[in-house]
C-alpha cells in the first residue's frame, strides 16, 4: 500500500502452545513396528482392488474395505522412483516442532518398487539441477539402535545410479 494508513490501534500478541498425542492406529502402528525392529518398509493390500499401499492404509479410499489382513503385507522398496519434488529455499515455522525449517529442504514424492501409492519424504540431494523427475532413489534407514518407530527411521532418499 502506497498511502500511509491510519495509525495502528492496540493489538495483542499471543502464542498458543498446544500439546497433542496422536494414535497411529493399528495399521500404521504395525508399519512403524516393522520399520523399527526389522528396518523393513511394508505395504499392505486392499482385498477388493488388490492395490498395495505404502504408506499403508487401514481402509481403501476407493473401495471403503478394511485392509488389515497382515498375511497380505509385502516388503516394498527400499528403492523407488522419484515422481516429483519441491525444494524449499525459504524457511517456515514447523507446526510439528515449533522450530524453523532448516533450508535448503527438498522433499520428493516417491513410488517405492512394488507399491501402488506414493510416499512423501526428504531427499538427500538439494541441487535442483541434479534432481530429475523419474530418477531412481533409495530409502536410507537408520541403524537399528537409533530407530524409534516413527517416520524419521527413514533418514531420507538418496539418488542411485543403476
Amino acid at each position: 500500500m502506497k498511502a500511509k494508513t491510519q495509525e495502528e490501534l492496540i493489538y495483542l500478541n499471543m502464542t498458543m502452545k498446544v500439546p497433542y498425542k496422536w494414535r497411529t492406529g493399528e495399521t500404521m502402528g504395525e508399519f512403524f513396528r516393522e520399520l523399527k525392529e526389522n528396518g523393513i518398509i511394508y505395504a499392505n493390500q486392499c482385498p477388493t482392488c488388490g492395490r498395495h499401499f505404502c504408506l499403508p492404509k487401514s481402509v481403501c479410499t476407493r473401495d471403503h474395505t478394511k485392509c488389515t489382513e497382515r498375511s497380505k503385507w509385502i516388503p516394498v522398496g527400499p528403492k523407488g522412483t522419484l515422481v516429483t519434488y519441491f525444494m524449499a529455499e525459504q524457511s517456515f515455522l514447523l507446526p510439528t516442532t515449533g522450530e524453523m525449517l532448516k533450508i535448503p529442504f527438498a522433499v520428493g514424492i516417491v513410488l517405492l518398487d512394488g507399491a501402488a501409492v506414493i510416499l512423501q519424504h526428504q531427499l538427500e540431494e538439494t541441487d535442483t539441477e541434479k534432481i530429475k523427475p523419474f530418477m531412481r532413489v533409495e530409502a536410507v534407514i537408520k541403524p537399528k539402535e537409533e530407530r524409534k518407530g516413527n517416520i524419521y527411521d527413514i533418514v531420507h532418499f538418496k539418488t542411485i545410479h543403476e
Partner: peptide, 14 residues
C-alpha cells in the same frame, strides 16, 4: 501427523 506432516511445507510445498 505421523507420516506426512514433517514433509509438507504448507500449500506451497504441494
Amino acid at each position: 501427523p505421523a507420516v506426512d506432516r514433517p514433509f509438507l511445507v504448507g500449500a506451497i510445498g504441494g
